[in-house]
Structures are given as structure tokens and as C-alpha cells.
């Protein structure tokens, strides 16, 4: 895709404005922080981050490695995609494993049918940041996802415990970012802060980016719990009265299998997915994430504890 130049007035779509802002943010981090890392999960937001990194740094190499916090309960289609995309880019991927954190006794596996490894990721992430000495981590989080995120800066300062203090955020003016940290502290950086879910999908369509096929409608064996559809898998225990059935679904978000729900959909290509998102009446986290449903401030609490 090339930017249309139309004299005497240059016209720039809002996606290209957002793109320019994100590229600027990524270059600031590369220039000012010692040891950044980009978190790549294989999900749609981090797929966009990778394209933005190409736009920011090619023909040079990325000035940071990629890292995936692998819960061990991810969709196999996504892991396959992750490895293929990293190989195409010729960049380095670090895999931080929740299973290893469990084996080392750093965290304890939850039990029962509602067990999820989602919460355990925070420890694995913080351990990996410390072990590698990363002082900045790019994430694909967006402010439209959740109202605590709507309050978070683009450069989100974390102390040496990885903690976010929502009452003591650094003022963030113009495009002047303050990434100064002391040893052991870090910043989480969100280049997609001002993007919405629809912007992400429109950008994926415009850039013709490949995404894991579970984002498109496919037949899958699922069961219903709390009004959401979950894939049957070895990682999910069925409760009484839960009957698996097969139907056409797609995923709006890609996370741990134990807390990510599917939506009934027949949208099988990018255009119909964009149309579906434009017409939806429910937020992506509300429709597909069990982890945000616990309390009114579930996300704020998890972020304070070091979560993305």
C-alpha cells in the first residue's frame, strides 16, 4: 500500500495518522531505552505491532527481540502462525513459559473446571523481564478495550515490582515521551493506545496482513458457559449440564483457551469480519473474556499487580 499524494492538499486517512503516531512511539523507545522487547502473542493487535515495527525500522533489523508469554494452553493454530511469522521476519523470539513457572514452583496451578492460567502469566512475564533485564516492553493493548486502560499513558511506568500506580502517572504531553527509568524499573509501551478494534481490523485489511485462521468462521466443537462459547479441549473440564455441540464460530480475541470465548459467526474473510465488528453492539472483552467479568475493577486490579 502506498500513501496517496494529492496536491495541493495532502490527504491522510485516520489509519495513516494512527500508523504515523505508532511508528513515532516505537522509534522513541528504540532510541531512549537500553533493552526493549516486543510482546508478540500471535493475536491481531501484536500482528499489527509487527507490521508497524517493519515500517519503523526496515531496512534495518528490529532493535529488540520478540517475546511470547506462553501459557501452554494456547490455540495450536496460533502457535503455528507465531513461529511462521517470526521466521518470515528473520527476527528473534523468546518464549517465556507459564509451565516452567509452575514446574519451578513460582506459581501454583489453579484447579477445578474454572481453572485458568491467565492470572499466572503475570509472574512469568515479570520473571522474564527481570531475567533478561528488559527496561521496556511493547504491548498491543488499546484504550478502547477497557476503562482502566482508557486512563493509562502510552508510556506506562512500572516500578521494580512491575506495579502500575494509576494515581501517580507521569504527565504525557504532545509527542514527548519520558522513558527514563532506574535500574529494575521499566516502561510498558502501547503504540496502539489510540486505535479501536475496528481500526485494527481495517488496518489488517488495508495492509493485507495474515492472521491466524481462528479469527475467521470455522466449525468447532464448543460448549456454553456463562453465556459464552468455549472450545472443548484437554485444558477445560466440563461441568454438569454442559453439553458440547458443533457450530460455526470465530474468535474476536486470542488468549488462553481457558478464558477466551468464541462468538457465533459466519464471517469467513476480512471484509465480512470488518463488517461484523462495525455492526457489533458488545465490546470484545465483554463478549469473549471471562477474566474481566470478576469485579467492576478487575482490569485495574490486575494491572496494578503487573499485568498488561
Amino acid at each position: 500500500m502506498s500513501t496517496q499524494i494529492d496536491t495541493p492538499t495532502l490527504k491522510l486517512s485516520h489509519l495513516r495518522v494512527l500508523e504515523a503516531e505508532a511508528i513515532h512511539i516505537m522509534r522513541e523507545v528504540a532510541a531512549e531505552l537500553e533493552k526493549p522487547v516486543l510482546l508478540f502473542s500471535g493475536g491481531k493487535d501484536s500482528i499489527v505491532l509487527l507490521r508497524l515495527a517493519e515500517k519503523a525500522f526496515r531496512p534495518g533489523r528490529f532493535p529488540f527481540p520478540l517475546m511470547h508469554v506462553d501459557t501452554g494452553h494456547n490455540f495450536p493454530e496460533v502457535i503455528e502462525f507465531r513461529d511462521r511469522r517470526v521466521a518470515e521476519l528473520g527476527e528473534r523470539l523468546i518464549v517465556a513459559s507459564v509451565q516452567e513457572s509452575i514446574d519451578k514452583g513460582r506459581v501454583q496451578e489453579e484447579s477445578g473446571p474454572r481453572a485458568s492460567r491467565n492470572r499466572l502469566q503475570t509472574t512469568t512475564l515479570l520473571d522474564a523481564i527481570e531475567a533478561h533485564g528488559f527496561d521496556a516492553a511493547f504491548g498491543g493493548a488499546r484504550r478502547d478495550e477497557e476503562r482502566a486502560r482508557a486512563k493509562e499513558r502510552i508510556f506506562s511506568f512500572r516500578d521494580d515490582f512491575g506495579t502500575w500506580d494509576p494515581k501517580r502517572q507521569r504527565p504525557e504531553l504532545w509527542s514527548l515521551y519520558n522513558g527514563r527509568v532506574a535500574r529494575g524499573e521499566s516502561v510498558r509501551v502501547f503504540p496502539l493506545s489510540n486505535w479501536t478494534e475496528l481500526d485494527v481490523w481495517q488496518y489488517i485489511a488495508e495492509e493485507n496482513l495474515e492472521v491466524p485462521n481462528i479469527y475467521f468462521a470455522h466449525e468447532r466443537e464448543v460448549f456454553k458457559r456463562d453465556g459464552m462459547l468455549y472450545a472443548t479441549s484437554d485444558h477445560m473440564e466440563l461441568m454438569d449440564g454442559e453439553e458440547p455441540f458443533t457450530t460455526s464460530v470465530r474468535y474476536r480475541t486470542v488468549g488462553d483457551m481457558s478464558c477466551t470465548g468464541a462468538v457465533a459467526s459466519t464471517a469467513a474473510d476480512l471484509d465480512t469480519v470488518v463488517g461484523e465488528i462495525a455492526a457489533t453492539r458488545i465490546t470484545e472483552r465483554g463478549e469473549t473474556r471471562a477474566d474481566d467479568r470478576v469485579t467492576e475493577a478487575a482490569m485495574e486490579d490486575r494491572k496494578v499487580a503487573g499485568y498488561f
Binding site: R143, D144, R147, A150, K151, K167
Partner: peptide, 24 residues
Amino acid sequence: LLTDGLRAEREQGITIDVAYRYFQ
């Protein structure tokens, strides 16, 4: 309560920090 996204803001009924919202 839509824009006052922090616990402290909801408790005190005031806006403390900037919230970003998007519409099209």
C-alpha cells in the same frame, strides 16, 4: 461512570486523570 475508569474516581465521584474515548 463510563469515563471515570479508576476505582478512586468512582468512589469520589470526580475525574482525576485524563480518560481517552473514541468514536466515529
